[in-house]
Amino acid sequence: MKSLFQKKYNSNNFFLLAGPCAIESRDLAMQIAEKIVGITDRLGIPYVFKGSYRKANRTKADSFTGIGDELALSILKEVGEQFGVPTVTDIHETHEAALAARYVDVLQIPAFLCRQTELLAAAAQTGKAVNIKKGQFMSGASMGFAVEKVKMENPEANVMLTERGNSFGYSDLVVDYRNIVDMKVFDADVVMDCTHSLQRPNQTSGVTGGNPELIGTIAKAAIAVGADGLFIETHPDPANAKSDGANMLHLDKLEKLLEDLVRIREVVS
């Protein structure tokens, strides 16, 4: 069965949710979007621009959280309109659903909030597609209840479930690819988050670490086991990104990776 974005773009390829962790500025968002649109158009990959309008889950109180809600959301809307692509952003509380829905096409539920019934319901009520990140503390099989909560509010809702690893000790994550297979039985597209699954959380420095050199490995394995889509945060200068730079893919490395992934998709299909 073709996924939501495969149907929209009449494509048998995987789809891609990609962009910076957070909206840092209009110029940066446009730069990243233009680069990725050029690559995905050439490769025939359905593309969704990703950017968080606000970061609510920060380790330290003084960490970067955003440039202002309305400004960041307006940049997301402008990116979507200028490049003709859908857009996705996170929401954290029920009142944010209606606000964000005025600007973007997909509402994303962060992993730590995937069991929040009222948040899932609020997202569903907007009529937008809903991407639910699987909690680091949950199995893929248990995510059927999250889908059920959305569908109870809106039976026609387009739902995505995103694998992003499971907690392994206090400061690491591990990816169990059985979760992708398990989640594919639900009425939802299944996505692999290739960057957050490589985080090294809870560092004593108060800044989350990561293993970005393994992004390609995670992505290739996900396509091989049947993921419908990939989630990749990317930035032209990860070392100076305002959020999650330690696990983002350098923008210059994205094209070669996507070329390799398209070839893998062709083989497994």
Rank of each mutant, 00 (worst) to 15 (best):
M152P: 00
G140S: 08
E153H: 08
A111S: 15
L119Y: 00
P110L: 06
T162D: 06
M138A: 13
N131T: 04
I132C: 07
Q136F: 03
G140R: 13
K128L: 05
K133T: 05
M138H: 14
L120T: 12
N154P: 00
K128T: 10
A123V: 08
Q116N: 15
K133N: 03
K133L: 01
Q108F: 00
I109Y: 03
S142K: 10
A121T: 09
A141P: 01
S142M: 13
D105V: 04
M160P: 00
E148R: 15
M143A: 12
E163A: 08
K128I: 13
F112V: 13
N154F: 09
L113F: 10
M138V: 09
N154K: 04
D105C: 07
Q108G: 00
G140I: 13
K133E: 03
L161K: 06
C114F: 03
A157V: 09
Q125W: 00
L120P: 00
T126V: 05
V106P: 09
L120V: 11
G144H: 12
S142R: 07
S139R: 06
F137T: 05
F137K: 01
M152W: 12
V159T: 09
V150S: 12
K134N: 13
M143F: 11
G144A: 12
F145E: 14
S139N: 09
L107W: 03
A141I: 12
V104A: 05
C114I: 10
Q108T: 01
G140K: 10
G144Q: 13
E153R: 09
Q125N: 05
F112M: 08
F112P: 09
E153T: 08
T162L: 02
M160L: 08
Y103F: 15
M138I: 09
G144S: 09
I132K: 04
V106M: 09
T117K: 11
V104Y: 03
E118H: 12
V106I: 15
K134M: 06
A124K: 09
P110I: 04
A111N: 13
A146D: 08
A146N: 05
A121R: 14
E118C: 02
E163V: 02
T117L: 10
E148G: 07
S142T: 14
A122F: 04
K133A: 02
A124L: 08
V147W: 14
G135A: 06
V159K: 13
E118R: 14
L161H: 05
N131S: 01
A157L: 05
L107C: 00
N131K: 07
K133S: 02
E156N: 15
K133Q: 02
A124Q: 11
G135E: 05
N158Q: 14
A123C: 11
S142H: 10
E163M: 06
M138F: 15
K133C: 03
K151G: 02
R115G: 11
G140Y: 11
K134C: 02
K134R: 08
A141Y: 03
A122E: 01
A122Y: 01
V130P: 00
K133H: 03
T117Q: 07
E153N: 06
A122H: 02
R164Y: 02
G135C: 03
A124V: 12
E156L: 14
K151I: 12
